[in-house]
Design a protein around this nucleic acid. Structure first.
Lengths: 266, 266
DNA sequence: CAGTGGTCTAGACCACGAG
DNA sequence: TCGTGGTCTAGACCACTGG
């Protein structure tokens, strides 16, 4: 039945026997592997497998979805290029995670002008502020909330070898991040996104950044150790979980005297 | 024989009969589809098929390389995700091109803050300068030339609806671009990379950008219609042809008052 | 050694585009 | 109607990892 030509989207049963009613009007054709991809995605969202876990083998999934191994493979391939899964030959396929993934700061594109990331050493983090407040209109709009909904605001400075490099301000929806405290943030080692995963079950999947050049205002200048008016990179990031649900709005000011934002185009 | 397990890299004959000496030491294993990908890439570099051309069908290539259609397919898939080929169902597979590709400015990430690209209208281009000179050390280094080698320098301003937005300065290696004149550049409609393709057979394949925030100096400020000291995005782009050969160094200053540099992370 | 992902094949059939 | 790319299958074998 999966062999059927009349594939209506989402017609593949996850587990049960075979009997998907034929749609006589099937304008939207969706390939099987796409449907399988969606089903796997659902399991990921539902938390059936947690970040870092190994998912069932291709053959197991093929049996479960009643399709061939090759079809499951195409679905997993797609999820792997989306960075949701990671394949490891000889071991298995794993749910991607921000933790234990040696590349710290997966979304940070700021690199030292000279020298490597390693010799730069780890970032020193200082939380400047962390409070609960009602979402301003613009923040609410971008996070898909209503104006006045509860949000968390976090402000912090990142420094390398004692030299401040980034000042950033985050807004997080109050619901999913209920219970996040300044202590948890301060005590934490490792990427913030890793903490979001382990403590709140929120996994960031992709993000969009809008970059501008701005002049430092007085407060920002003071925190970054530059003169007011100093040119800074303004990086506004909206990060999404599964299903393109916005989960974090972040506005960063980057010093770019000894560092640059690197981007690859193709 | 392509079925052989003892695949030594590059061992697949393009056309001739079968007789690849078995390497008894074969530490580097390269899958067949990778080798096919390399062979297709060579044909692209050699100009066997020009930008915009349709390449032979998957079955034809499979016959030519003595492998199955599925293997050719994987090779083409890889080249397509690298943006070197474009598949069009029902028509064929084509060599990617910067021309006739409705997205003008494939590498330009500057978008209007409000409204769409369409309502912004086409960019107005004004060549400020175009001259031949000896490469400064830094330019030579990045382009893989020797200091003092001939390079072309072009300086131009891009404006939208009469408002200047970008000032950029380009360096091109003198050899491949012999004969490029200010007239050709000024007369040209369409993306500069399209002109490079059609007139010089140089196709840009990927690029790396380094972005910083800077203050406008007097000259730059005047050309962009802002006050000196105004914060600008400095975008340094190194663009590559096939084989990761650097072919263009470009330094742009972007006004970001009504526009932003957009980047997608995943 | 067994179990996992990775490669390759051969063949069937579908969707799309153009004559 | 034909030729192209797109999907799906079934099965064989290889490469890597770990017990």
């Amino acid at each position: 039945m999966p062999t059927s030509t009349q594939n209506s989207p989402e017609a593949v049963p996850a587990d049960a026997g075979a009997s998907a009613a034929f749609e006589n009007t099937a304008p939207a054709f969706s390939p099987l592997y796409q449907q399988i991809k969606t089903l796997i995605l659902r399991s990921l969202q539902a938390g059936e497998w947690k970040p870092g876990d190994m998912i069932p083998s291709e053959f197991d999934l093929a049996a479960r979805f009643r399709v061939s191994q090759g079809t499951v493979r195409k679905a997993i391939d797609a999820l792997a290029t989306d960075n949701l899964l990671v394949r490891r030959q000889g071991k298995g396929t794993f749910v991607a995670t921000h933790a234990e993934q040696h590349i710290q700061y997966r979304f940070l594109r700021l690199l030292p002008d000279t020298g490597s990331l390693e010799e730069q050493g780890p970032a020193e983090r200082r939380i400047v502020e962390c409070r609960r407040l009602r979402a301003p209109a613009e923040v609410a709009r971008q996070l898909g909330l209503r104006t006045g909904d509860a949000v968390l605001q976090v402000k912090r400075v990142l420094a390398f070898s004692g030299a401040p490099a980034i000042l950033e301000e985050l807004w997080l929806p109050g619901g999913p991040f209920k219970g996040l405290t300044i202590e948890a943030l301060s005590d934490d080692k490792g990427p913030m996104y890793a903490l979001f995963e382990t403590q709140f079950g929120v996994r960031m999947v992709r993000a969009v950044e809008k970059i501008k050049a701005v002049s430092a205002d007085e407060d920002t200048a003071a925190l970054l150790g530059v003169a007011p008016g100093y040119p800074l990179l303004s990086v506004e990031r909206l990060a999404f979980t599964y299903n393109d649900e916005p989960m974090e709005l972040r506005r960063g000011f980057y010093r770019t005297d000894a560092r640059h934002y690197r981007n690859e185009l193709s």
